[in-house]
């Protein structure tokens, strides 16, 4: 393994079809719309605590899911989009945000701890960087059991300064574990811009110190993410070792619902909104696949209905039974 090795230019995925790209567009729009409703619910105090929105970054999770549908995913606390991209139902997720018994984590987790074992969505985590070593352990199990899967772990630029992140890279490379590390570089760790977090602002170079293959690219176009994550997961799945991807992205909202994001330079957000993932893919579907306004209206209506149904389900669901308070501290010991 040499540091100069790079991923193959082309993944094993076929050329994208109109049907597939339309589905990816719909997936991104669903995340956008569900989160907009979550933001509204937050202002109405139906969702409490911390609530970190993914709006603007949807192309990363949706594109990454194409080649890793049956693989294990872990993400940090900005994970609503990853959960839905991985197949977690908007109803179960919204109910979790509302703190309801029907939530995917039974109201125990909340916004930062979305879990859904059936979809191999292994959680959102609230200690920055702390979950990255966990993904190496999932990959350890995959390798020992020869499952042929990969572990995909998402984290932000802020996590790449944590020891846990670096230790995870060291171990994954040492043991040649099938992990795809995805750093979503949205340029802000809470309110601190990248150049004030790190002397090295190309975060893919974090991989060089452990001899890991890495790649940096812009992730606003879901097709690019689809293709490059597939190349990385092909590589890891083939037993060639882990990969660090630095996917450059941008969040349209503040760090959390309580952050007005006044630290951004004037005009930056407007400039970045020109590369809104939804706009890029909509233009591509229009220009190259012949979708027309009526097609988009149908998709929008369909998404709106699903998002509203999630809201209604969450709103109408029961709160957790107080009798269950102690049910989730220890797993029952077998007799």
């Amino acid at each position: 393994m040499s540091q100069s090795e790079s991923l193959p230019a082309k993944s094993s995925l076929p050329e994208i079809s109109a049907t597939e790209l339309t589905a990816l567009y719909r997936g991104m729009l669903l995340i956008r719309r569900v989160e907009e409703l979550a933001a509204k619910a937050y202002t109405q105090r139906k969702i409490l605590g911390f609530c970190h929105l993914y709006i603007g970054q949807e192309s990363v999770a949706v594109g990454a899911a194409v080649s890793t549908k049956d693989d294990y995913w872990m993400a940090a606390y900005r994970e609503h989009g990853h959960a839905m991209a991985k197949g977690v139902s908007p109803k179960a997720m919204m109910a979790e945000l509302f703190g309801r018994a029907t939530g995917c984590s039974k109201g125990q987790g909340g916004s930062m701890h979305i879990f859904d074992k059936a979809h191999k969505f292994m959680g959102g985590y609230g200690i920055v960087g702390g979950h990255v070593p966990l993904a190496t352990g999932v990959a350890w199990a995959i390798k020992q059991r020869k499952e042929g899967r990969v572990a995909v772990v998402f984290f932000g630029d802020g996590a790449t300064h944590q020891g846990a992140f670096f230790e995870a890279l060291c171990l994954a490379q040492l043991y040649k574990l099938p992990v795809v590390f995805i750093c979503e570089n949205n340029f802000y760790a809470m309110g601190t811009p990248l150049h004030r977090q790190s002397a090295v602002t190309s975060l893919k170079f974090r991989a060089d110190g452990v001899g890991m293959v890495s790649e940096q690219f812009e992730g606003f176009d879901v097709e690019v993410v689809r293709e490059r994550v597939a190349a990385a997961s092909d590589f890891a799945r083939a037993g060639k070792g882990p990969v660090l991807l630095e996917i450059v992205t941008y969040r349209h909202r503040g760090h959390s619902m309580s952050d007005p994001a006044k630290y951004r330079p004037d005009g930056e957000l407007d400039e970045k909104k020109k590369s809104d993932p939804l706009a890029i893919t909509k233009a591509r579907l229009t220009d190259d696949f012949g979708l027309v306004d009526a097609d988009f209206e149908a998709i929008t209506d369909d998404v709106e209905a699903e998002a509203q149904a999630a809201w209604t389900f969450a709103h109408d669901s029961p709160i957790p039974d107080p009798a269950t308070l102690y049910d989730f501290t220890y797993a029952p010991t077998e007799a």
Partner: peptide, 21 residues
């Protein structure tokens, strides 16, 4: 054997345990 990396290999163990090791 591990490198001197307690945070890393403790976390590795936890992740492996989550999927049944």
């Amino acid at each position: 054997d591990t490198p001197i990396s307690e945070n890393g290999f403790a976390g590795l163990g936890i992740g492996a345990a989550m999927v049944g090791m």
